[in-house]
Design a protein around this nucleic acid. Structure first.
Lengths: 348, 348
DNA sequence: GAGCCGGATGTTGACGTAAACATAACCCGA
DNA sequence: TCGGGTTATGTTTACGTCAACATCCGGCTC
């Protein structure tokens, strides 16, 4: 171990010291490599004594199977590729966390590829890189609205799960139930006596945004309410703030449903700045239930998405597909729930 | 949307179709496998005509190098292992994003392992799994306070970079300059005329929290200010809220420096609830500059950490180590900056 | 006791790649 | 004209693992 600091210690040039291989273990235990392989893979047809000898040799030498060789041999890597559109989205990050936990629990690791844009070339480039990396399956965590199906079609027969609200992929799809959540939020506000509900939506290219928007509109129409023009944001708090400034200037606005918590935060700030009290004059409801939402001022009423659950469902489906059990390409929707806090109140 | 029961299309049982290999390309191009290898690796000693023939054959057949075989042969995988303590921390997530981008730009992919706890067993288990996965280097993105050096010592000579504020690892260390940032925040509040500054710190086991705490204390002492008891939080907005309630009850408190933005949010909420105006009666400064901070109410004065930069530095150092250029085990500190918004103001 | 069965273990070869070495063709100066 | 030095290309082999097949041995049946 280098004595840390300075003296750019001529570290004994990290010699590409050969790792302990099966052959080494075999020699140490006095058996053949194949027997070591059998022990490593938990085969039953090995004499208990022999097995123990091999296990001892393994731990003495610090043997770890070389997964490159294993993958080359078997075509399996016990690795899952995840393609994400950067990590900026709060929800996707939590989903990724759940994916990673589930994968680890099943003995898989995660190979993460982020793409700068959801463009065709970026995504197919990511596919190609994953193919090189001998992953056993792929999770796509992107808003894929702008990608035609053909562009998503994989050249290889790899199992794929898409975490997205779109239907009609030839893959399994898992997502939070956006429509149900948006309806929950909208009806909550109507139930409080508001005549209608304004909507700050996510960007046009997002499927999730589209579903929330459609469900909001449907909920209003079902109750015979006027449907105000939608306000198009881009998920950021800044866009919420900008839109909020316009809404605050309109005295008719008494209830706003923002398509995520960040935009709700921006909207609330705009109302604060305009001197319109929340929730006394205007109610605001968000979507996501990020950890901070309970500490917004006022604490935010919002729709809780269960991202962890989505990640678990996606990984479970993918692993089932990889390991050959069940290959339904189903669409799984994880229900959301409304969390009522202080940013929404009865129409004055 | 309720067509959840998708017609479970009977997909033509994914046959493990052999991938196109070098041999296939070689046959198609009428050259030897070795020549294909040379072209694939961009060697110069190939006749332009031959090279073109090989490239044509590659694209016709859709050849992609098999990285398992490549790794087996060369001992390199062009993959970086990242060990993270879950993805819950906002900053670490952004750092990971930068790591992933940088890695991709250099032709590496990311193998992500999350650990449930920073315990010795979890972390060393993660090491072992990464070693199996033939990664070329490892980035550790955990608060490693509780881990002795010996526990972190890798059995293999793999290059390692630690993103943490600790010193004295036998590895390169990169982090935001916590001490400088905390001093910035504290002095900002003192400069506004506050007699002293209360501190809501991160948990004891966090190195970053410790550095911020020490710098806060040092800044106060340098100015001869009274050092109030520190308030120990756990990074969550809830803990900030709880502590904020206590602080709000103390009329002496006029300035609070919270060790992250979430706790600052909780503190501010507590002051709102207690009817103490921010910043008129109490100033609050956070740490991180998360994207939402500008839209808190009031917009939060905070210390901006450049997580992307940290990720870039870490990956640059790691790749340099992997590829043999420069092997100083330096400690890199990325400076932070103060972002003044509306949550801090002059002492009344 | 011959024949057979099955469990434990060993031997061979192949996965796709690339380093090391071998060969062949060509160029240039003496 | 020859020898030495390039440059382009081919051949062999090894990386670590594991499936397939081969072998060995003890025990059981008839």
């Amino acid at each position: 171990m280098s004595e840390t600091t300075t003296t750019s210690t001529v570290i004994p040039t990290r010699e590409r010291r050969r790792e302990v291989s099966m052959a080494d273990v075999a020699a140490a235990a006095g058996v053949s490599g194949q027997t070591v392989s059998r022990v490593a893979n938990g085969r039953t047809n090995v004499d208990p004594d022999t097995r123990q000898r091999v296990l001892d040799a393994m731990s003495t030498l610090g043997y770890r199977p070389n997964s490159a060789a294993r993958a080359l041999r078997s075509g399996r890597f016990r690795s899952i590729g995840v393609i994400m559109f950067s990590l900026s989205s709060y929800g996707n990050t939590r989903t990724l966390d759940a994916l990673a936990s589930m994968a680890a629990a099943s003995g898989y690791s995660i190979t993460l590829i982020t793409v700068q844009s959801a463009s065709q070339s970026d995504v197919s480039g990511a596919f190609l890189r994953l193919r090189e990396h001998a992953v056993d399956g792929i999770v796509i965590l992107i808003e894929t609205h702008r990608l035609g199906e053909n562009e998503l079609a994989l050249p290889t027969g790899l199992p794929v799960v898409v975490v997205d609200s779109s239907a009609d992929y030839p893959y399994a799809v898992v997502d939070n139930d956006q429509a149900q959540g948006a309806r929950l939020a909208t009806e909550h506000l109507l139930d409080l006596g508001h005549e209608t509900v304004w909507h700050v939506s996510g960007p046009p290219e997002s499927f999730a945004a589209e579903r929330r928007r459609n469900a909001w509109r449907a909920a209003l129409e079902d109750r015979g309410c006027h449907v105000p023009d939608e306000q198009i944001g881009d998920w950021t708090a800044e866009s919420g703030h900008r839109i909020g400034q316009a809404l605050a200037a309109d005295a008719d606005v008494t209830a706003v449903f923002a398509a995520n918590d960040q935009m709700a935060l921006g909207v609330i700030r705009a109302f604060h700045e305009a001197g319109r009290a929340v929730p006394d004059e205007v109610s605001v409801v968000g979507f996501d239930d990020m950890p901070e939402a309970a500490n917004f001022w006022p604490p935010l009423t919002t729709v809780r998405q269960r991202f962890e659950r989505v990640g678990e469902e996606a990984m479970t489906a993918l692993i089932a597909d990889i390991e050959g059990t069940g290959r339904e390409h189903a669409r799984t929707l994880v229900p959301t729930s409304l969390v009522v806090r202080s940013s929404s109140g009865p129409r004055r």
